[in-house]
Amino acid sequence: MASTLLTPKHVTYIQSLDTKRDRLDYHLTEHLRLSGIYWGLTSLHLLNHPTALPRSETIAFVKSCYHPSSGGLGASPGHDPHLLYTLSGIQVLATINALDEIDCDKVVEYVSKLQNPDGSFSGDEWGEVDSRFVYCALNTLSLLGRLDDAPSVSVEGAVGFVLRCLNADGGFGMAPGAESHAGQIFTCVGALKIAGVFEKSLSEDQVNLLGDWLCERQLPNGGLNGRPEKLEDVCYSWWVLSSMAMIGRLHWIDREKLVDFILSCQDEENGGIADRKGNVADVFHTVFGLAGLSLLGYEGLKEVDPVYCMPKEVTDKIVWNHRKTPTSQSL
């Protein structure tokens, strides 16, 4: 079992992802491709190999996913636009400082049109509502520097919706009334942080309840689960951990045990990180494993922003440094 981070293997693993066209999974996951680029690129930045993916090809791929008629981005060329992939595309361009490659006004227009009268956002024109999409929308707008002047977007309405997803156990669900879930907690706390209202929205009691719910996700093997009485998983290590970082309660769990758990999920032969020890690695768990290690202060990794899951130096430059009250300071 690896006890250190296998950086060169992970770099090679991510670089080789686009060459696996002889495997069925490659084709069955086309509907995730643009997010895959974001996961891979962010991994490489955290690993201090920011140029390991060719920049011009990356930009070209993002542009090939863009729908000029609506302003949204799909997962791959020929796939319909959706907020999930619109965010991924903007995150990629922001990370490699290439936001001027796309018509940002049009993207803002796409996002704006998806807000519903109750403040929530739909994922696309078909209307699915989920608190995740509020995060996608606010995140995208803030990376484009348009959170405060997006036409017809009500940040206040969005915040109101997120707060209606808050449960008595301190967590957040996918809609008002829905059970708390670590993934939704990450997106809801993240949305409130991006809107700059987290501190005034939750009482100290509520933050403590949330912190308690989150720290109880750590299981004896050091890994974190996403809901009570569930199994551990590297991706939940990120959703839970980033939320704990955002509310300033990272010290409520055992960092060393979590570091060991994440390291044990590495594929020592081919690189990449899996959901659990001994399973097949993928780029999704790779980025969330690395981002988790970064939050835990693992040596040699670039600092990650718990709100954005992007390199902190990038978000500082394009988001936080422009804030009158630097929300990130309270992290």
Binding site: T29, D233, G278, V280, D282, F284, H285
Partner: peptide, 24 residues
């Protein structure tokens, strides 16, 4: 790209098996 709960050893065995590769 986001696989949950697939064992590495099983996957590797699949990759080595000529017949299975052809099928894939």
């Amino acid at each position: 790209m986001a696989s949950h709960g697939i064992s590495r050893s099983e996957y590797a065995a699949q990759s080595r098996d000529e017949h299975l590769r052809e099928k894939e």
